[in-house]
């Protein structure tokens, strides 16, 4: 009996030790035992994540470790090969989509639409109505003041990224999922992005992003996920 109690204690202790990795049942977003496959091969060991509002998760890992695949699956663009995502205790996808915005490597700007038209389309497709003033404000904040009538194809790579990131300010979603958001941005751009992430978190939002050498963002993070490729022999 005593030994059983002791074992329970021990189990509790180990549970507490891993509390950061184990999902809390009450967490807003819960990702449990998630794995992804690419070309039929499992990419990484199962991922557990429990996130509430005002939290930041940084996903790191070498090239090819599956960061983008994981983020896409988290966003709902593809499926986990095993495990699940639960938002507000529900696995229903639409509820999650209403509260999240994913920004991947493919930025989603239409080249022959102007910046303002790109933003308007994104707003309308998310059933938000915007006026000209709002889109101009958002572009101002993104450092694209005066570019509202410029075609997106005429922008530089960094400006395209800024245009895509400015959607986040327009859409007002709780969860942001950003795949390498700092890539292509200049120093001022990185600082700006850091600031909007910080203020989004302080206002009750939550962010999941992948990043390599952004020390500031790593310091800010509440959760770290480091992806490591599974050794081949495990599966052979």
């Amino acid at each position: 009996m005593i030994s059983l109690l002791l074992r329970c204690q021990k189990l509790k202790l180990t549970l507490q030790k891993h509390a950061a990795n184990k999902p809390l049942i009450s967490a807003l977003l819960q990702i449990q035992d998630a794995q992804c496959q690419r070309a039929g091969e499992v990419l990484f060991a199962p991922i557990n994540l429990a996130m509430d509002q005002s939290e930041l998760t940084v996903i790191a890992g070498p090239n090819g470790s599956g960061k983008t695949t994981l983020l896409e699956a988290m966003a709902g663009l593809s499926r986990f090969s095993s495990g699940y995502r639960r938002y507000e205790q529900s696995e229903e996808l639409n509820n999650w989509l209403q509260h999240s915005h994913y920004l991947g490597h493919k930025l989603g700007n239409k080249g022959n639409l102007s910046c303002a038209e790109n933003l308007e389309f994104v707003a309308h497709i998310n059933e938000i109505s915007v006026n000209q003033q709002q889109t101009e404000d958002v572009l101002d904040k993104a450092g694209l003041a005066g570019y509202q009538h410029q075609f997106a194809s005429d922008l530089s790579a960094g400006q395209k990224k800024r245009l895509a990131l400015s959607r986040l300010l327009l859409l007002n979603k709780t969860f942001w999922l950003l795949d390498e958001p700092f890539v292509n941005l200049d120093h001022a751009g990185c600082d700006w992005l850091y600031q909007i992430i910080e203020s989004h978190i302080s206002q009750g939002g939550a962010v999941i992003l992948t990043a390599h050498d952004q020390k500031k963002i790593h310091d800010l993070a509440n959760h770290h996920i480091t992806l490591e490729a599974i050794p081949e022999e495990v599966f052979t």
Partner: peptide, 14 residues
Amino acid sequence: YEDGSLDLYVLSGM
């Protein structure tokens, strides 16, 4: 699909 705007409307829950 290539410029990523497909993701935008798929993920809008449309």
